[in-house]
Write a protein that binds this DNA or RNA. Structure first.
Length: 689
DNA sequence: AAAAAAG
């Protein structure tokens, strides 16, 4: 019913907004794309580096031209300015004023996603929008969603009545926005509040890590029309009948970062959440999904929950070419992980020095991504140590702000970190993947990634934190030789150039000792590391181990590399001992140089002989000589009695490959009898991801 | 031992 009203209200002006470039219509039954307009010349130009995609789009354009006989829509028919949305009667003056007024958001021209989807979304049709990171997706769904609420005759504009009261109810939520991270929810809510200012629309946030009762009281007091939140807390609130919060007339459901929300970890929760909303057959509900990639999970959810006449809008334009095809990216293969902090420090120092000479360079504002929270925290502490050090010569980056963000901080700490980095002109943010998606930090000049990210999409999203809003940026990834294969496989096709020359510190062999120069990055980073509590360093080392094993081809080499890193990077007297159980879970319990704590668990089952294997066979690798040459120990180690099981004549020594495979299967769970086989999923429409 | 997200 509401949908009908909305459609009627805006129908007259719909033709005014004409999609500018590819507007692809998805027909679920046919599984076929039907391009409804042709491509701009700029679009084709942007694919010069991407032959396959170029051919595909050119073919689509030709097909569309043959069908319609129209070559290119004239520019005049396209609404690209926010102001024109008002003059055409599509969007209310108050919303447009909030967006365009210099003292407000100060925006003038719409991005491609905006000009292509606002129209569709205003009609009340379901939309699946695919657009690259940093192209203004948030505003694209906020504007029509709010306008649709305002258009609704049952929406009663409310007014402030003092003491924060508005007279609005929290039991009549009209729109719900779901985000995969708390900070992204907060960011969306902040933007929504700017757009909604003085319209009577009330925006609230519901995320975990905050006091539930506090948020509820606020909603009860102020009311709520548009709620932004994370899945867990939203589910909590809507399944609690005493919360007083309800959405019996929910008209719009938005899944931001839909691919993430519908992947393994989240999909169940999203489905349960959807069950808490009114039946869409009784209350007309529009579903909007926004995503940079459209994998199968998303299509499955689209088929299940969206109206059959939904639109699939895909935007590609020259100035919105995917970040990872546009931004210069370099890979540095380091001597070992012990070189990481000196290398990053060198990069920052070098840029800062250049920037102070060259006013055209923006201040250093970098994000450093690591794969484990404790690693993030440790790196941050090292740089903080360099910052607060009382000795000036040990303050290589001056007073540059060092900020850390990851799930192990309190929510207040996370929120503050995100806001501080947003506002900072010169700073380093040490981050886990909490900020990888959707976060909008203005003017990030560098994105640095330590180690191979967990998947390809994560790499691209992290990189997407830089080079936003027509700014430039650069991406770096720091790796070791052991990861090379995995790196190539995962990021194949992304134009990353290997850099062998920029950072001598990256290839310095730190087992040689640190020579002279106290102001070298090597010495500075190492000194700062040594200042931190050993327990912190041990924890981080163990976590890093956990992330590295799956990305390393050779587990023995990985253990050797991490042993070196423990001593020369983490400045520990010897590699921390890992419990036998953990070692087994990691699939490295039989790697000779591993420092295993306590008695070894015997992993042989009764179908196999128990020749001197297992117990104690790998201990004693770290003694007085622990500071160097762990890999060499293994060669000597074969002479020890405790290693009998590995000597020639042992049951498995003759076919090392077979033994290794057997071992890997059991310990890692891949292909083992107790775990199910999990095939790698490829995105269905991940074009350039 | 490995992000995130409900306590």
């Amino acid at each position: 019913m509401f949908g009908a009203v909305r459609r009627f209200g805006t129908a007259h002006a719909l033709r005014a907004v004409v999609p500018r470039s590819t507007h692809v219509r998805w027909t679920p039954q046919l599984f076929k794309w039907q391009p409804s307009s042709t491509l701009s010349p700029g679009l084709v130009r942007s694919f010069q580096t991407f032959p396959a995609l170029r051919e595909a789009t050119a073919a689509a354009a030709a097909e569309a031209e043959a069908e319609t006989g129209v070559k290119e829509t004239s520019e005049q028919e396209i609404i690209t300015e926010f102001a024109d949305l008002q003059t055409s009667g599509l969007i209310s003056p108050s919303l447009i004023r909030n967006i365009t007024h210099p003292s407000r958001m100060g925006l003038k021209t719409m991005t491609d996603v905006q000009s292509q989807t606002i129209n569709q979304m205003l009609q009340g049709v379901d939309v699946l929008a695919q657009a690259k990171t940093g192209t203004g997706k948030t505003l694209a769904f906020l504007i029509p969603t709010m306008q649709n609420i305002l258009n609704d005759p049952t929406f009663v504009q409310t007014r402030k009545t003092g003491r924060g009261r508005t007279g609005a109810s929290c039991a009549d939520i009209r729109a719900l926005i779901i985000s995969p991270t708390r900070e992204l929810a907060e960011q969306i809510a902040a933007e929504a509040m700017k757009v909604a200012a003085n319209t009577g629309l009330i925006v609230q946030t519901a995320v975990g890590g905050t006091q539930k009762s506090f948020g509820l009281k606020k909603m009860q007091r102020e009311g709520c029309h548009l709620l932004v939140g994370t899945p867990g807390r939203l589910k909590d609130i809507f399944s609690d009948p005493r919360s007083g919060v309800a959405a019996p007339g929910l008209n719009t459901l938005i899944l931001d970062e839909a691919d993430r929300l519908l992947d393994d970890g989240f999909s169940q929760e999203i489905r349960e959440l959807q069950d808490l909303f009114p039946d869409p057959y009784k209350v007309d509900r529009q579903t909007l999904m926004l995503s940079a990639t459209v994998p199968r999970e998303v299509m499955r959810m689209v088929d299940r929950t969206m109206k059959p006449d939904y639109k699939f809008v895909k935007t590609i334009r020259e100035d919105e070419a995917p970040t990872h095809m546009r931004v210069p990216q370099k890979a540095v293969f380091m001597q070992g992980y012990e070189n990481i902090l000196p290398t990053i420090l060198d990069l920052a120092k070098e840029y800062k020095a250049r920037q102070s000479e060259d006013p055209s360079l923006r201040p250093f504002k970098a994000i450093i991504y690591a794969n484990a929270t404790s690693e993030v925290s440790l790196y941050s502490s090292v740089f903080e140590e360099l910052r607060v050090s009382p000795e000036d010569r040990r303050r290589p980056l001056g007073r540059m702000a060092m900020i850390e963000i990851h799930s192990r901080l309190t929510q207040a700490g996370r929120t503050a970190a995100a806001n501080n980095f947003r506002r900072a002109t010169e700073a380093i943010l040490f981050s886990s993947d909490v900020t990888a998606r959707g976060m909008d930090f203005p003017d990030v000049t560098h994105v640095l990634q330590v180690g191979v990210p967990r998947d390809r999409v994560t790499y691209v999203h992290r990189l997407g934190r830089t080079a936003r809003a027509n700014k430039t940026g650069e991406g770096w990834i720091f790796l070791t030789e052991g990861e090379r294969q995995h790196y190539h496989k995962l990021l194949n096709g992304i134009p990353i150039e290997e850099d062998r020359t920029s950072f001598p510190v990256a290839s310095y062999d730190m087992t040689e000792g640190l020579s002279g120069e106290p102001d070298s990055s090597l010495a500075q980073a190492t000194r700062a590391m040594a200042m931190l509590p050993p327990a912190t360093r041990e924890t981080a080392w163990k976590s890093q181990f956990g992330t590295l094993i799956p990305t390393h081809g050779d587990r023995r080499a990985c253990v050797a590399a991490m042993n070196r890193n423990a001593v020369h990077g983490y400045c520990l007297p010897e590699p921390p001992a890992i419990s036998a159980r953990v070692a087994q879970n990691l699939g490295i319990s039989r790697v000779r140089d591993l420092n295993v704590e306590g008695p070894r668990r015997n992993f042989d089952d009764d179908r196999r002989p128990r020749s001197g294997f297992g117990r104690d066979s790998n201990r004693g690798g770290f003694g007085r000589d622990s500071g160097r040459g762990f890999s060499r120990n293994s060669d000597r180690g074969s002479d020890r009695g405790s290693d009998r099981g590995r000597r020639p004549g042992g049951f498995n020594d003759r076919s090392p490959r077979g033994r290794y495979n057997n071992f890997v299967d059991r310990d890692s769970g891949f292909g083992g009898r107790s775990r199910e086989f999990k095939p790698t999923r490829r995105s269905t429409f991940d074009d350039d991801f």
